[in-house]
Design a protein around this nucleic acid. Structure first.
Lengths: 121, 121
DNA sequence: TATAATATATGTAAAATACATATATATGAC
DNA sequence: GTCATATATATGTATTTTACATATATTATA
């Protein structure tokens, strides 16, 4: 009755989770750094509001068990919460590749059909 | 103060709107038919609940002025509400192509980086 | 001693999603 | 004739997500 009712509802959230998991899988990292690395995938995090949402998504990845965390107090400045991928996270990422591949095919088809539409006009 | 505060919040909704606008631009159509044509873009509409959401998105496309409608009572069976693209809708579609092209690039990059990640492991 | 950059986190109104439900027409089965 | 099914459109609403404001703390530098 309680627990998780839904799988992938919102896509934006879904993609953001995948981008973050890939970045973390490549190299353990922390929220502030990840926010800049997201540029690789065309995501610009601007303003504290958006940062806040990013932190919330990260903490939920932890709740789901896809990442674990470790505080880094070595560097100067405020402590950093380092996110490290788990086996469960890697598995989730692997399974999610299907949807990424489908999205690539879909966008490709969409662009092709849009061009065809404009040829006729 | 009132009016539209946001642009593209949810991606899922955003994509669905674009798919529908392209399909309607290709050929005027109605909700029930569009629900089957969405398969072209990997979207499976199943159950009356999902159909209901589709109709709501269509009616909001009309509110935004991207489509206009016309009732078709010629065919047998229940009347069909035919959606026809407007100039405003075509303009919106054209402007949105940037985000489609970016999504294609992003997914391509994502797949490449995921493969590279697994090479090392 | 400000101010800016770095770093994490919560509060919440508004919007989107998932799914149930309501309604109506036509066709074929029995 | 009436029952089930396919066709067709639409609304109600609890839950979840989004957008953005706000809170808090550390270090560097001007």
């Amino acid at each position: 009755m309680p627990g998780f009712k839904k799988r992938f509802c919102g896509l934006r959230r879904h993609w953001l989770e995948l981008y973050l998991l890939l970045l973390i899988a490549e190299k353990p990292s922390y929220g502030y750094e990840l926010s800049t690395k997201l540029k690789d995938f065309g995501i610009i995090i601007s303003g504290t509001g958006q940062m806040g949402n990013l932190y919330r998504i990260l903490s939920q990845l932890e709740v789901k068990g896809f990442v674990k965390t470790d505080w880094d107090t070595q560097e100067s400045g405020p402590a950093r919460k380092i996110y490290i991928i788990t086996d469960s996270g890697l598995l989730f990422l692997r399974d999610a590749m299907d949807s990424v591949i489908e999205m690539e095919k879909t966008t490709e088809k969409f662009i092709k059909r849009y061009k065809e539409l404009n040829k006729k006009t």
